[in-house]
């Protein structure tokens, strides 16, 4: 049965089987391939999207339980914090393969929106749910701090 979700500010009609996780609705039905599939069990963070501004694992969220919440993906994420993060990511060449990076950016953006001056410990807490096999962690930490400076 078709339902309507608010994704990146637009009401979007979706006709997927009940219980289908939001990740696969975004990727296979809506062709929004920014959120990635890394584990399917909420452990790696590659599928991170914002649910009313809070980072969530879209592989664990049945699309038919989203309700009226606003879903934002990497494709639609804008704003001061997001821009600062993107600019810092580009300036430092943070990503290597890039596969986990939409999740990393969504997590980092939510961190800065919530806490504009994060400490190393704050960064560890906010980012440790997002695995990067290329191990861009050191660059991510530096770039979040660089982005925070531009927001100050």
């Amino acid at each position: 049965m078709a339902i309507t979700l608010k994704i990146n500010g637009e009401n979007t009609k979706i006709d997927a089987a009940p219980g289908t996780p939001l990740l696969w609705v975004l990727r296979d039905h809506l062709k929004m391939t920014g959120p990635k599939f890394g584990c399917g069990v909420g452990q790696c963070g590659a599928c991170t999207v914002h649910f009313n501004g809070t980072p969530v694992r879209s592989c664990q969220l049945p699309h038919d339980e989203v309700g009226d919440a606003e879903i934002t993906t990497i494709e639609g994420k804008e704003g001061k914090a997001a821009n600062a993060i993107r600019e810092a990511w580009i300036a430092a060449d943070v990503p290597q393969c890039g596969y986990c990076q939409s999740g990393q950016i969504m997590a980092a953006t939510a961190l800065l929106e919530d806490n504009p001056k994060p400490s190393d410990d704050d960064i560890d807490t906010a980012m440790t749910g997002n695995i990067c096999r290329c191990a861009t962690y050191m660059s991510i930490r530096r770039a979040i701090k660089d982005a925070a400076k531009t927001l100050a």
Binding site: E75, R86, P95, S102
Partner: peptide, 21 residues
Amino acid sequence: IPSLTVPLIVRGQGTFGIDVD
């Protein structure tokens, strides 16, 4: 020299194997 892929990655662009349609 800055990466040619990073400006795409930060927008969720670029096509990985899983993204082919």
